[in-house]
Amino acid sequence: MIVGCPKEIKNHEYRVGLTPGAVREYVAHGHQVIVETKAGAGIGADDAAYMAAGAKIAASAKDIFEKADMIVKVKEPQPSEWAQLREGQLLYTYLHLAPDPEQTKGLLESGVTAIAYETVTDERGGLPLLAPMSEVAGRLAIQAGATSLQKANGGLGILLGGVPGVLPAKVTVIGGGVVGLHAAKMAVGLGADVTILDRSIPRLRQLDDIFNGRIHTRYSTIDALEEEVFAADLVIGAVLIPGAAAPKLVTREMLSGMKKGSVIVDVAIDQGGCFETSHATTHSDPTYVVDGVVHYCVANMPGAVPVTSAHALNNATLHYGLALADRGLAAITEDKHLRNGLNVHKGRITNKAVAEALGYDLVQPEAAIRAA
């Protein structure tokens, strides 16, 4: 199979779909790999490193899309990219289709077979290709929140960990999954007063054991959510429903009860955000203010630390990517976890959460593949 890796073109996205180490693995499996020139510049991997790993260098993304049987990316294809996709081609990347009807329409019209990192599952019911970026985003959320809390950036002017004689900042984390766990780890490490809200009692027990009394846990009701958000200096939105649009848990009305200069970091923005007032921002213009509350809603947060995040992502995606390159559609029919990753196939939506969010008819992955 010819495996292609174009340079990412989303705003300030420095990650790359294939590292030189990953290229070497594909080549060892007998595949031809073509990489767009300077695709790895953001992680310090030049064209020579890719050629040494066995890749051929393409002068443009157009060459990649024309020649490759499988496209490996990081972020969802942009309009200029989905226009170049074609029937019979595999697309392997993050998609986040539920809040993005335009991209969904573009992929359906292209006829491409699209596998979304964020809905591939594992034997434990986890999301193994989403997890590494959730870890990065959770940790970055605290860095971004701490910076946004500085007075010059519109925040309260409060230090997360305080100092002797001065209380630390209060951090509320909505959602106790991978993002929430890693956000809490960073916040606790900086000395903040942290509360995690979640609706799973077993998960709250687990978090209580992990932190051994260093955080507070609360069952998430409307009352509890309001109390914690109103008291917080920094709120992290870390809610995930796999494949589906994030629920709007913090309403516009609730902002009036929050402190002026407090900060919201909506890590769920890739799936539409869990704050009613959230809209996607970029690394070049990451924040805006609504009712005195600073909103940080960058849709590709891990792109800010591409060396760490690209390698972490490739570590996770390589196994499934090799299976797709080795066996094509057979890999999807044989592996239920890859089937869960299939979102679009030849003009059909094959993921239930995406179909429900956007009003499409659902076609089961097996049926879609058989029909095509």
Results as ranks from 00 to 15, higher is better:
H12P: 00
H12R: 15
Y14I: 14
Y14Q: 13
R15Q: 07
R15P: 07
P20Y: 01
R24F: 15
R24L: 12
Y26D: 09
H29C: 05
Q32K: 15
I34L: 03
I34N: 06
V35L: 10
I43S: 00
G44Y: 14
A45V: 07
D47Q: 12
A48S: 07
Y50I: 04
M51K: 15
A52W: 02
A52R: 09
D63E: 15
F65K: 10
A68W: 07
P77Q: 02
S80V: 15
E81W: 00
W82E: 11
Q84C: 03
Q84K: 05
L90H: 02
Y92S: 09
L95A: 00
P99E: 04
K105C: 00
G106N: 08
L107R: 10
L107M: 10
L107Y: 03
L108D: 10
E109T: 08
S110P: 04
A114P: 02
I115A: 09
E118D: 13
P132F: 04
G138Q: 11
R139G: 12
A141R: 07
G145T: 13
A152Q: 15
G155S: 07
L159I: 13
V163I: 14
G165T: 03
A169M: 10
V171P: 12
V171H: 00
T172A: 09
T172D: 06
G175I: 13
L181G: 01
A183R: 11
K185G: 01
M186R: 14
M186S: 15
V188Y: 13
G189C: 04
G189H: 04
G191K: 07
D193A: 10
T195P: 01
D198H: 03
S200E: 01
I201G: 07
P202W: 12
R203H: 09
F211K: 00
G213N: 06
R214Y: 05
R214T: 08
T221W: 12
I222F: 13
A224M: 04
E226W: 13
E227D: 06
V229Y: 07
A238W: 06
A238Y: 14
A245H: 14
L249D: 05
R252N: 11
M254Y: 01
L255N: 12
S256C: 04
G261D: 09
V265N: 14
D266A: 08
D270C: 08
G273L: 13
C274F: 01
F275D: 02
T281S: 07
H283E: 10
P286T: 06
Y288E: 01
V289C: 09
D291T: 14
V305F: 10
V305R: 03
P306A: 04
V307T: 12
H311C: 13
H319D: 15
G321K: 05
L324S: 04
A330M: 14
E334G: 04
D335I: 00
D335F: 11
L338C: 09
R339T: 14
N340C: 05
V344T: 00
K346G: 00
N351L: 08
K352L: 14
K352H: 03
A355E: 03
E356I: 06
A357K: 02
Q364K: 15
E366T: 14
E366M: 15
A367L: 08
A368H: 02
A371F: 07
